[in-house]
Design a protein around this nucleic acid. Structure first.
Lengths: 106, 106
DNA sequence: TTAATATGCAACTATTGGGTTGCATATAAT
DNA sequence: ATTATATGCAACCCAATAGTTGCATATTAA
């Protein structure tokens, strides 16, 4: 079940904040991204690495700094999976509804 | 950042399997749901409890067994949040595109 | 009433995770 | 050449998590 890793990566307030920032502003360097997260730079770096491992984010070294890039495909995967769950659920409810209707005396 | 808790709950293969089962079939008892997860009943029970705490799932006791019910609202929240991230991202890309176009010599 | 089933609760272990500090290194600016 | 900036790497700590086993309890079936 590969999907779990994506949600696991999103399942931390710091990492979610990072992702949110990336989705909103243009590219961030590791340094900028690590600011105002309430933790140390190295702490932030570790969280960024988690996002890299989950492939939600990509690093691109440019000179002495490193850009952090969002990978929208992975976000899409996460959303698609949830959407599928919801659809199955609704389909199930529909089936149940029909079943109940069939049982009803006309 | 409340959202993180939802993803955290989804971020485990066992729990994701449970959610998947719940979305697909009709209501499960705790017992049935705990089968074939590769872990003990009590282990599974703990994971179900995590889902309960995250309000992704609800329990309803019926006699000696307990039904596990999916809470579709929470799934929707998770999906909505990701969708919003994606939209911000796209909006950002659009803005960038326009900026580039403005810089282009006609 | 006795037995079987469905579940709960608690203690314990091992691993993962989030975070820190300290130090090293590479690139850029003065 | 020296200094400042951006980042990397490793060791360490503590808390949380995933899982286990063992036993208790409530409900239903025989």
């Amino acid at each position: 079940m590969i999907e779990a890793d994506i949600y696991k990566a999103l399942g931390d307030p710091v990492r979610l904040k990072i992702i949110t920032r990336l989705s909103g502003r243009s590219t961030h360097t590791i340094g900028k991204l690590s600011e105002n997260l309430g933790i140390s730079r190295q702490g932030a770096r570790k969280q960024i690495q988690v996002l890299v491992s989950a492939e939600l984010v990509q690093l691109k070294k440019q000179g002495r700094e490193t850009q952090v890039l969002l990978n929208p495909d992975k976000l899409k995967m996460a959303r698609t999976f949830i959407t599928r769950l919801e659809q199955q659920w609704e389909h199930r409810l529909d089936a149940l509804k029909h079943f109940v209707e069939d049982q009803t005396v006309p």
